[in-house]
Design a protein around this nucleic acid. Sequence first.
RNA 1: GGGGGAGUAGCCCAGUCGGUUAGAGGCGCCGAGCUUAUACCUCGGAAGUCGGAGGUUCGAGUCCUCCCUCCCCUACCA
Length: 1116
Amino acid sequence: MFQPVPARPDLVALEHGVLAQWRERATFSRLRAQNAGGKPWSFLDGPITANNPMGVHHAWGRTYKDLFQRFHAMLGEDQRWQNGFDCQGLWVEVNVERDLGFTSKRDIEAYGIAEFVSLCKQRVLTFAARQTEQSVRLGMWMDWNDPEELRRLRDLLAVDPSQTTTIQGPHGPITDTVEQLVGRLGMPDVGGSYFTFSNENNDLIWGFLRECNKRGWIYKGHDSMPWCPRCGTGISQHEMTEGYQDREDPGLTVRFPLVDRPGEALLVWTTTPWTLAANVAAAVGPELEYVRIRQADATFWIGKGTLKQSVRGPFEVLESRKGSELVGWRYTGPFDDLAAVREAFAKGTRDAPDVPYEHRVIPWTEVGEDEGTGIVHIAPGAGAEDFQLGKSLGLPAIGPIDESGHYYSGFGWLTGREAPAVAEAIVDDLERRGFFYHLEPYNHRYPHCWRCQTPLLFRLVDEWFISMGPVYDQPRETLTREQVDASLRYQIMEIVDQIRWIPGFGYERELDWLLNMHDWMISKKRYWGLALPIYDCPNCKTFTVLGGVADLEELAQDGWEKFKGHTPHRPYIDEVTIRCSGCGEPVQRIADVGNPWLDAGIVPFSTIHFREDREFWEKWFPADFITESFPGQFRNWFYAMLAMSTVLRREPPFRTIFGYGTLVGEDGRPMHKSWGNSIEFDEAAERMGVDVMRWMYASARPEDNILFGWHTADGARRRLLVLWNTYSFFVTYARLAGWTPTAARAAESPMDRWVLARVARLAAAVEDRLQDVDPAAAARLIDAFIEDLSTWYLRLSRRRFSRNADPADRDAAFSTLHAALVTVTRIVAPILPFMADDMYGNLVPAFDADAPDSVHLTSWPSQEVARFADPALETAMAMARRVVDLTRTLRGTAGLRVRQPLARMWLALPGADVRLVETLLGLIAEEVNVKAIERIDDESTLVDRRVKPLLPKIGKRLGAAIPAVMTAARDGAFELHADGSVTLGGVTLAADEVEILATPRPGTAVAHDEGLVVVIDTDLTPALRAEGDARELQRAIQDLRKDAGLDLDARIELWVAGLPAEVEPHLASVARETLADTVTQGAAPEAGGATQASVELTNGTASIAIRGLQAGSTGT
RNA sequence: GGGGGAGUAGCCCAGUCGGUUAGAGGCGCCGAGCUUAUACCUCGGAAGUCGGAGGUUCGAGUCCUCCCUCCCCUACCA
């Protein structure tokens, strides 16, 4: 017997039960064993940052990852099932700093880098364990580490990283120091998720960097770079985009008095007053027009086009000149007395190093007039474009601030002060000294640190880059081999060409990024991350890039013993000096750590053992499939993998990339705790259940944002409950009937054959959609099927499952519904792993000793059910359903409820499948409660024929004659010819250029749709009315049974009073349908525990009462 | 600033090669009906200047031009 199933399931409890069962039965290990040796399907997991608990947005992507892995497992394909954690970088550092209450890098240095780095590792282990547990809860099947073991390693690491311990690997126990075991996580002997902080990961990046250096692509850049004063590090172009925010800055207009033109001054505008101390020049547009104006006793030079926005108060224009005429004018800078300025200027320019430099006007074609004064303040030490401009003219550069954003010494009263905070003081100072002109707040988008939201400053620094190569000003297809070989970006583009991008715009977007990106800045002046293997000799200016820790050991001069035994992280790695390849002097590693996208970009190599097991690597590389949320990844993970694979192999690291959008609250706004639209993963899992979440995710259109919230979840749950209710119905009635699955029997009735045909098509169609990476379409197909199964198959077949049904037909119905449900559980298993397995577990294993005990161990069912396919039957059934709809509409307008039987209806059917539809007439008649259906033929007086010209076929040919033809068609003014052609509107159309449809004659009570015409006989005889009354009576009694909470098979006593005589003949059948053992004409006895009601019938009101005969019946 | 996408019913959104009556679907609303699997489901209804303006065409939600709004990518305009 099937286990009883509640009508309203507790999905969360169900999920916990299934999780326990998977654990106890080792279901996942058995699946892996079962598919071992199968055709490989290589999924590569993009690492999730192990820095916080995972959120519902992660669950979206992880649902995709899991559903595709499960689907391919059902195809029998072998997989690696390796999850990944992203471990290194500023993300983790910032949180550790916050926990410690640190505000600057000085705090970290004081605390100790070794201890700080250890805390970063511990944090990663903490959240790797946490995310592992959450992912398991989501139903994600991966080769997970035991979270307790990760926490144990973390705790041991905190106490003493050098202590020895033992963990269980897939091939037996492994003993090593805690630090080394942590560094070996994810490697073949240790197993489990990969961690990007692993020794192997870091080491392979070193190899990649050495390869880049071999080709001359690594260089040290000296530039004005965006810089976060809080984090104390430069911000790369990749990171800038994420940090733009609206911000109000002081819009300050200052006067720069001209040295050679007494009484005249330039008006210059800036939004960063702190950079004025680094001013070197004032730029004008050589082609722009500038005017000299008089205001009170002062005269100013200003861009003509900026007068309106920049000049306050009345003024008089004195003269006008082109910008090029201003070039070379000397002016007095606002901070010329500062030692740092004097010192920088004393060195002169590149072209005249012996003559002290003086502030002057320089030309710059980029100067515009939309904002400011048309004269641009240039500070090469505090702005990127300024730096480039200064460099091209050989001007000096003044770098005013240190890594925490404070002025260096040599800046007088500014020294030691925080640059962004001195704006007000500088304004006061300038006002006092006569440099001030005007100040007003200015709102603009300004770059901020993506991690800590601090506004960025521009600072003169050295950073390390991988050159992306030249951008050629010509179409890609015209590039020569030599050009491509000289430019990494075009090499990557060739790789991008070989990848399938879903959605398609990802392809263009990646190419666009590659074409426009700057060189890849790989250095970060921080602590926790890849130790860049760059040894920059201060002595001879050559730098060495190592290709692995083995190189380091070989070249080590000093400090190897201090490093030995540690993972390749700061501070220990910094202890080792090597011999400079240029001059032989000892040289230290640069202090910088690496860009974290190097860490994630190498995983197509590091996680599949590129170095230590080439055969394995070749089996799994390239990945068949990756999927990630696309915001950011075109310039981050996707880019890093593409770049690294291009350098190392010049082949694609993955074949198909499936990107998806952003998860927002159900109000369409980003989730935000203070907006009340934010939902934590754990809360969602335990309140809505993860199958519901997975259904929402799978159904979402990936390229759009998904709206996630409790209400949208309710919608998804409703859909799933329809499936559940079908299953619950089946189990309830199978138990009542004592039916259990037996050898499959051929379905005979059209309805049974139809539902099996439907499920066969579903299996094939879902397979097709999932193979084509279109889960949303797969979910839509499943959704439509559930609807068909419940509201058509089951609705019409319900009586066949009842106790009174014909036993053979009832068996057929049970057998069919069982087969359909079992197949559906297998189809939905990848998306709804819990509900599917729970249903399957009840439907199958107890009755089939050969069947797997989990749906996830079954194979994809499309082959097995393919023989049920029957498209013609499906088409005919669709027509039958439309007939039923039309008939219901007619009954509604005529005020005839479906319970009221009708004598007959007439039906006009178009098309060729008439014979097939005829086999369905019985179904239609029963569903719409009519005694007989008559076909309407062409000669019928009930319908006319109508011509529908097929416009796409005739449009081009007829052109301007169309309106006349269409008017004639509408008016029915046409002439039919024997060969099927039609003349109308003065034109003759061939048979294949028109459709002939039936249409109701005006004035008839009919419904129609695309030539399908339904007419009902609304004439009610007394016999029909009596029969309707009987149905009414029967329904009222069933309602009473429901009210009384009686079991489905409880027998009852029935009393009926006031029943009109004409209904009496039907009483016996009413009693049979309502399981009434006794029927008494008259009122129920007083105080008999009976439930009563009254029923409105055609000829009066009847009173009814029932009493259950079955002891202790308290409902289902 | 440059590039891409989008704008269709109260909301989320389909809409093919241009085809005459704008609608697959979902949510919501109104009305009716059905029902001992389903506080569910079915049927019907209301409601739209297809962002705006021009153009091409026998015919435009669909193609073209310009404009408006939103989103995404990209960008240090001082």
